[in-house]
């Protein structure tokens, strides 16, 4: 009984944040709305039985990426973000595929019967995920570690290049 109640509250919260994201004129507030959205998404991951993803989502997105984003916002002058809307013709052109997407989704959700599956809660533990990572996906983890060195090298090289230009 608690799960449907919480999920309906989350759905309403996401809809409210979706509207708030477009109503805000200042970019900093849009980023803060997105920050709240990411924390809520982490809690939704908790309802899907993946605690590790919840921790990862909050630490990586709310903790690292968005803080870095907010730090970057202070580097730009405020005039850059004053006029940011597209023309009305562009708005109408993007509204049509968006509405088509929403209508199709609602039709699929309410007309076709999606088969319900009972998830086994014992499978979804961090221990099982770690077993899967280190037994079936060692190459993927190795590649991931390699990919994660890219931004560090890129930041070093680009910052060094910009310092020498100055």
């Amino acid at each position: 009984m608690a799960r449907p109640l919480f999920m309906s509250i989350f759905l309403l919260l996401f809809l409210a944040l979706f509207l708030l994201l477009f109503r805000q004129k200042k970019v900093v507030y849009q980023f803060l709305v997105y920050l709240v959205m990411m924390v809520l998404l982490g809690i939704v991951y908790l309802f899907l039985g993946s605690e590790f993803l919840m921790a990862f989502q909050i630490i990586v997105y709310a903790g690292a990426i968005l803080v870095m984003f907010l730090f970057f916002l202070y580097l730009y002058p405020e005039e850059e973000f004053k006029i940011q809307d597209m023309r009305n013709s562009t708005l109408i052109k993007t509204l049509i595929p968006s509405l088509l997407f929403v209508i199709t989704l609602i039709l699929i959700l309410f007309t076709f019967d999606v088969r319900e599956y009972e998830a086994s809660a014992s499978v979804y533990s961090v221990k099982e995920l770690a077993k899967l990572i280190y037994n079936q996906y060692p190459l993927a983890i190795f590649l991931l570690a390699f990919i994660l060195t890219y931004p560090m090298i890129a930041i070093y090289l680009l910052m060094k290049g910009s310092e020498s230009d100055d």
Partner: peptide, 11 residues
């Protein structure tokens, strides 16, 4: 609707 998987797809 809120107990199944559809609400997650909607979010």
């Amino acid at each position: 609707f809120f107990a199944g998987e559809k609400v997650f797809y909607l979010i």
